[in-house]
Write a protein that binds this DNA or RNA. Structure first.
Lengths: 114, 114
DNA sequence: TCCCATATATCGTCGCTCTATATATCGACG
DNA sequence: CGTCGATATATAGAGCGACGATATATGGGA
């Protein structure tokens, strides 16, 4: 229930990656481009931030990555696993809760009922 | 326009303090208690987090703090300055923007118009 | 009187983002 | 052909900021 601020950003970043992959398999660089354009430049991944996240999520089994063998530039294609899809939904709901609670507190509104 | 994740949490924490003081002057410990209860335990300040923020905001002129002289336990009462009130409103709006954009991206919704 | 809650303060650690750097390949342009 | 910029991944190191631990002090209740 309590939110730790230190891991909040981490969670948001992971969510950004996870939700970007909902559209279909992508490689890292493409994720960075898409998140940047989807958010109209509000959010953007530095390479040093993105790739460690990708490795982490793969290690946790939320993504599966495989190197594209075909001709052309070498890239690693990431796909949402079943667990990843479940995590995406769960975390997305969690974010909704956290954000709505945050806005309530910041606005100083009395919470009606929840 | 672009949001730096590293300072997002910092901004959120400062906003939490600022908005808590909108209710009236408070001392640090009271702010911690209020934020915790207002958010129903979702957000809470550790002492090592709160006091540096208070000092920072005071240094920036968004808060003014003065030691209560009266009898009783020594405490430092913080009050929102005019600049602090302005900052609170501005930052609050900024948070709204960031949050709504974030939810849009995470939900994968096409932005209608903005 | 002893302990707990109140109250403020600071230092050190740790986690995480971000910058910088390294490596490599493809396409375009001259 | 040769160079340059975009594509593409990777990692080490810097630096920022939250968090835990610790210190100090006092008021009130058992």
């Amino acid at each position: 229930m309590p939110v730790e601020m230190q891991s909040l950003i981490r969670d948001v970043n992971e969510l950004l990656v996870l939700s970007s992959l909902r559209e279909g398999p992508k490689h890292g660089y493409q994720i960075a481009l898409d998140v940047e354009s989807d958010s109209r430049g509000m959010f953007s991944f530095q390479h040093g931030t993105l790739y460690p996240i990708l490795h982490r999520l793969e290690k946790e089994g939320l993504l599966s990555g495989r190197w594209s063998r075909g001709p052309g530039r070498r890239r690693k294609e990431y796909t949402l696993t079943a667990r990843g899809r479940t995590a995406l939904e769960g975390r997305s709901r969690t974010l909704d809760d956290v954000v709505s609670r945050l806005l309530q507190v910041v606005r100083g509104a009395e919470p009606e009922a929840s």
